[in-house]
């Protein structure tokens, strides 16, 4: 019983520190999700325009970001880009985190948006064209709204991946949840396992609703056969 009270006391003591970490995790992941989704959305639409050069360039971009681990991308953006001696590319750790995570997000989102747009029946855009809409109008008014609905389930799956990836940002010194946990462990090395459990629980509380939402959305809007995980 004593040990439970002791652990509870410890938990209460650690909570402010870990909550700042969770807030940072939330902030970084939200930035990355918003910027990455916009970029991915843009690239995904470009990719469906059937221009061979653009499609190939975006395909290369996707292969590069899907083919290397996020940890490597993070090191490349944080350590390698500054060595090019361009003032603009000398990111501080927070910018590097957001840039790398946004690019990583966009690689997933591009694929989903492309698949979603292709999943909208062709008759829809043909119908739009036949009532006199231009290509842009048919995309904007007819195809994209339907595609967005289809892309909700896999998109929330991607967001879980992105939130989980923020744990890696501790290696470049962002004071997010994992990092704050490590700081707490430096102070209280005896409670290492307990602290990691609390961190895991906090990630679980953040991610699990998104995962459940993804499953619910898939039941509601149907699957387009893209499973990000």
């Amino acid at each position: 019983m004593d040990s439970i009270i002791e652990k509870y006391q410890l938990f209460i003591d650690l909570l402010p520190l870990l909550m700042t970490g969770l807030w940072m995790t939330f902030k970084v992941s939200m930035f990355a999700i918003i910027i990455g989704s916009l970029l991915g959305f843009f690239l995904g639409i470009l990719r469906t325009l059937n221009n061979k050069i653009i499609t190939n360039i975006i395909g290369l971009y996707l292969h590069i970001f899907r083919g290397t681990p996020y940890l490597v991308q993070l090191y490349l953006i944080y350590f390698v880009l500054p060595s090019f001696d361009v003032e603009f590319l000398k990111f501080d750790s927070f910018t590097a985190a957001i840039v790398s995570l946004s690019l990583y997000t966009s690689s997933y989102v591009t694929e989903i948006v492309t698949a979603a747009i292709n999943a909208v029946p062709k008759g829809q855009s043909e119908g739009a064209r036949s009532v006199g809409m231009s290509k842009i109008q048919s995309l904007y008014h007819i195809v994209v709204p339907q595609a967005l609905k289809l892309s909700i389930p896999p998109m929330s799956g991607v967001y879980v991946i992105i939130i989980k990836s923020t744990a890696l940002l501790s290696v470049i010194g962002i004071s997010e949840l994992t990092r704050q946990g490590e700081n707490a462990i430096l102070r209280l090395p005896g409670n290492l396992m307990f602290i990691y459990f609390v961190i895991a629980l906090m990630y679980f509380i953040y991610c699990y609703p998104v995962l459940r939402f993804s499953a619910w959305a898939e039941k509601r809007y149907g699957s387009i056969g893209v499973d990000p995980e």
Binding site: V160, K164, S165, T166, A167, L168, S170, T178, L192, M193, Y196, F197, I199, A200, Y203, F204, Y206, C207, Y208, L211, E229
Partner: peptide
């Protein structure tokens, strides 16, 4: 399945790495 899918691999590795010797 749900617990593993909603926690980061890094935390899982730390838990196993430090927890297994315990």
């Amino acid at each position: 399945i749900q617990i593993i899918r909603s926690t980061p691999l890094l935390i899982q590795i730390y838990l196993i790495y430090y927890g297994l010797p315990f």
